[in-house]
């Protein structure tokens, strides 16, 4: 589903590459933790998958496509296959829960009848039934993250990228979010989650890819946060 083939990414003006000769292959339906300290290259890794930047050298393949060959006008269509969740939720403050989730369908030009059917379904999946009319500032962090996840998966992406989704949440709430991501993964989506959260990684025991200063230093099935 996602392949990094000898990928190096250098930001202009910085001597140290953000990623250096990274090779990795993520299969369809996998759940992968991407770990490493701040500045280790996790975010660059995610940005490359979303085609928000191009590698300086090497190739990134996502869903069977070489991203460097992707035409600019094809990018929006490509991004529809990827859902993204952030640490800071990125909800629209003026809109209700329902509207925030529906927004992702509206901007793709989906019909109102379709939206009215799909949104309650996905809200049920993330456990927010009954909160449709709330606004983000009336909700807890965990609830807001659930809204963001609902929005990320409403268009049924093949890949879900989660960038520190539990970074702003307390441990108990984090567990709930992880259960949700696990459920989404079981429904068939490939999940890549960048995280600092050792507890979460240790509990889940999934594949772990560790980056240190842009180098891939560990790629381990059923791994934990600290090297064993």
């Amino acid at each position: 589903m996602i392949t990094f083939d000898d990928v190096t990414a250098v930001y202009p003006g910085q001597p140290q590459p953000a990623l250096h000769r990274v090779n990795a292959e993520i299969e369809k339906g996998e759940f992968v933790f991407l770990i490493g300290s701040s500045g280790s290259g996790k975010s660059t890794f995610m940005r490359l998958i979303r085609h928000e930047q191009r590698p300086t050298s090497g190739k990134v393949y996502v869903a069977g496509k070489v991203l460097s060959n992707l035409r600019q006008w094809k990018v929006p269509e490509f991004r529809r296959q990827i859902g993204t969740v952030f640490q800071d939720f990125r909800l629209l403050p003026g809109k209700t829960v329902f509207e925030n989730v529906a927004f992702a369908m509206q901007v793709l030009g989906k019909r109102t009848s379709e939206i009215k059917e799909a949104v309650p379904e996905v809200l049920e999946l993330v456990g927010l039934t009954g909160l449709e009319g709330r606004r983000p500032d009336e909700m807890s962090g965990g609830e807001q993250q659930r809204v963001a996840i609902a929005r990320a998966i409403i268009n049924r992406p093949k890949i879900l990228l989660a960038d520190e989704p539990t970074g702003n949440l307390d441990p108990a709430t984090s567990v709930g979010i992880m259960r949700l991501l696990d459920r989404i993964n079981r429904r068939g989506a490939t999940v890549v989650m960048a995280t600092h959260d050792a507890n979460v990684v240790d509990q889940m025991r999934r594949r772990v890819i560790e980056l240190v200063q842009g180098e891939l230093v560990r790629d381990q099935q059923r791994g934990v946060y600290g090297a064993e």
Partner: peptide
């Protein structure tokens, strides 16, 4: 810009934005 960012994230077409 926040809305535009989300639009881009979920793959809204350029003309739509």
């Amino acid at each position: 810009r926040k809305e535009l960012g989300i639009m881009r994230l979920v793959g809204a077409s350029n003309s739509y934005i």
